[in-house]
Amino acid sequence: MLHNKNLRNISIIAHVDHGKSTLADRLIEMSGLIKPGEHVDQILDSMDLEREKGITIKSQPIRLQFEDLTINLIDTPGHVDFSYEVSRALIACDGAILLVDATQGIQAQTFAHSYAAIEAGLEIIPVLNKIDSIDADIENAKKQIFNLIGSKENEIFQISAKTGEGVEDLLVELPHLISPPEKKIDGVNALIF
């Protein structure tokens, strides 16, 4: 039986190629839905073209079960053409993982999407990705995140979605950082997104 207090609706937002779909892949693996190495990359991108170009076009939700915690995860596209897909996903969520590539720092869509998430009233979890890369400039990226949303150093997660490093910590903290969905309206009411 599902309890609301054990439910979290989260989307992943970031600039193009900062690793959203890769992080989604890692989280799916950790939920045990699929075993590592037994699937293609970008599990949630069902179109051939999405995989071929390495981009996400459609927002795709998936329900993940971690013991008694349920996470509805929504992977979003990063490209500016599809930012309406992001706005769709944000409405359905209570929190967002803001992923920033440590090698590139903040980019234009990082700005646009995090503002959209703030406007939608979402809690934002800043996460630095690709920390295993030799080009990673973690300090600089952290400073930029602080300037953007005011997160303190120790509030910023450091992960590598590719190797899976740090993703476990992120997952443990997630339910404490984002509140469970509340009933906002009396009676039957749902939004098609």
Partner: peptide, 15 residues
């Protein structure tokens, strides 16, 4: 879709 109100049941008439 995202449910904002009460629980929705599959035998319910909706609009």
């Amino acid at each position: 879709m995202r449910v904002f109100g009460d629980e929705i049941k599959s035998n319910q008439k909706l609009k």
